[in-house]
Amino acid sequence: MARRALLIATLLTAFAAPAHAEQLVVSLSNHRVAVTSNFDGEDLVLFGTIEPDRPQSAMRGTYDLVVTVTGPRHTLRTRRKDRVLGIWVNADTREFVRVPSYLGILSNRPVNEIANAETARRLQLGLNNFLLPQAIGPDTADTVRDDPFRTAFVKLETQYGLYRESPIAVTFLTPTVFRVAIPMPANAPTGSYGIDVQLFGGGQPLARTQTALEVIKAGIEQFIADAARDYGLLYGILTSLMALVIGWIGSVVFRRD
């Protein structure tokens, strides 16, 4: 549903480029995204241009782009069930410390085709290379990529639509103008999101720029969620009262004696 027509409102250039290098100019239509209850996962659009460091005629190959969108950080616990005395119980847990609540890795083709394994790891390209630190004793560290907890964590987050890797979300409109569709699911957490845009050419990183967006939730649902979190006691009393009032109305409307 692309009803949200996105217009270029502000231009952002955050990248202070050295001389003789490509420059990235990106623009987000709207820095505040209101997610409402009937929001069923729309795409937010980011436009950008690449300013080459030499005439187009002499341009080296084609450009590749990897955009990493990270939501507000939070700490989660992943639990694994094991069979204990014949029943399935949560037997083992791992804490993922300050990981993004939303993680979108968007590119114009698969990241392993854009850069070699070493570069991809260094620049955290792709879900496999993104740092997801786990609490290990008093320290935190990311584990090996095929760690079962890490794999399960990424898989679950992907199922919820919060973590995603898309090799088709970036489209080049011309060799230097691109469009990035950032998928925003309805369960996207509120808060500020970082957008990291990295430009590659011939497998090498050429330029990088950052921008940000703010996800806010509108509507009664968010009001309820905020109230429940910030004014728990009052919220509980009001919910109880609501229950009693409806119960009372029920007894009046359906009075049989």
Partner: peptide, 18 residues
């Protein structure tokens, strides 16, 4: 529910937000 092996052994719980 308790005895049959669940389809998904892993689950996630929020510990704290920012």
């Amino acid at each position: 529910e308790l005895v049959v092996q669940p389809d998904e052994l892993f689950s996630i719980r929020l510990v704290r937000g920012e």
